[in-house]
């Protein structure tokens, strides 16, 4: 059986006035994935997630979910999606029960039992009748997840689910994600600005910066200690990229940034890469292997000026 593509994003662009928040982004999430979506605050994660959920209209590009076009099959698609975006904001003047029931009704009929069961799952059954304004951040987050889950969606999108939580809360969310993936066979898209948070739960990772894809791959590959990321700088990066695309290295290519070409290879292959680059008549300025993904992630995403319409 072929794995189904749950999310397929192709050439996604979002511009706010003069600012490009998401720039030519493409990625695929397969059924059963826990897809880690990484990037600094303001990298374009939220904008992308909002586009996936029709909160924001893309400037360019196509989005398909469950093999259907998002624009034409919006309601059909959203019926199978549960999401918590940023803070899990609900109606503070209503109780947990009333909030959950209210949102659940937007997905269809809902019974008292179902609402209570769901509250049980997230551990809020005993606080069902309490107004949300008396809740802690962690409790709100759990209620938000209950709202995202109550209609039993196939795809769950969690945007920075551990933001503002204490260590116990973070652990709870992590366990819940694993439970949803392993026991309930859900597909999840989880965004974060912390690599450490994602690396233990994600099966695949996408890192973006300034709205562009930096690297995408399975956790197994990306976190493989035998692999390394190599950043190549030449006098003409475009030409370098072109050359590499025609070579045996093409499958290892990650992307071209203006200042460098990025390639992910086995550590042992670095000398070979070096030789090949010289043979291609490229005027090599530097060839920098990175120790780990985290190293690389930090380097490309930190210490730089991030200008984005979207600051979380």
């Amino acid at each position: 059986m072929m794995t189904q593509e749950i999310i397929k994003v192709d050439g996604l662009v979002k511009k706010f006035h003069n600012l490009t928040a998401v720039n030519n982004l493409s990625f695929t999430v397969n059924e059963g994935d826990v897809y880690g979506f990484l990037g600094q605050n303001g990298a374009g994660k939220s904008t992308t997630i909002r586009m996936l959920l029709t909160l924001i209209a893309p400037t360019l590009g196509s989005i398909e979910l469950f093999g259907m076009n998002l624009q034409t099959h919006r309601n059909e698609i959203l019926q199978q999606v549960g999401a918590v975006i940023e803070k899990p904001d609900v109606y503070k003047y209503l109780s947990a029960y009333d909030n959950l029931k209210l949102f659940a009704r937007l997905n269809g009929k809902v019974t008292h039992k179902k609402v209570m069961d769901q509250l049980e799952v997230v551990g809020l059954a005993d606080r069902a009748k309490d107004k949300v304004k008396t809740f802690s951040q962690g409790m709100k987050q759990r209620l938000g997840i209950a709202i995202a889950l109550i209609h039993d969606p196939k795809l769950i999108v969690l945007d920075e689910p551990t933001n503002g939580l204490d260590p116990q809360g973070i652990a709870d969310i992590r366990n819940l994600i694993l439970h949803l993936c392993k026991e309930q066979k859900k597909t999840l898209l989880v965004s974060s600005h912390l690599l450490t948070e994602i690396e233990h739960i994600a099966t695949k990772v996408l890192i973006i910066d300034k709205g562009r894809k930096i690297i995408e791959g399975s956790s197994a590959d990306l976190f493989d200690p035998t692999q390394t990321i190599v950043e190549i700088q030449t006098t003409d990066n475009a030409f370098a990229l072109q050359q590499l695309q025609q070579s045996n290295w093409r499958n290892s290519l990650q992307l071209e940034r203006n200042e460098a070409v990025v390639i992910k290879i086995d550590k042992q292959a670095i000398p070979q890469l070096h030789r090949d680059l010289v043979n291609m008549n490229l005027r090599l300025l530097s060839l920098q292997p990175k120790h780990s993904l985290e190293d690389y992630f930090l380097q490309v995403t930190s210490g730089k000026q991030h200008v984005d319409a979207f600051t979380n």
């Binding site: 959920l53 919006r74 698609i77 959203l78 918590v84 904001d89 609900v90 109606y91």
Partner: peptide, 14 residues
């Protein structure tokens, strides 16, 4: 302002 618009509009309601 309350942030609830996000939840509402990700529901299958046009």
């Amino acid at each position: 302002n309350a942030g609830t618009l996000r939840f509402l509009l990700t529901k299958p309601v046009s």
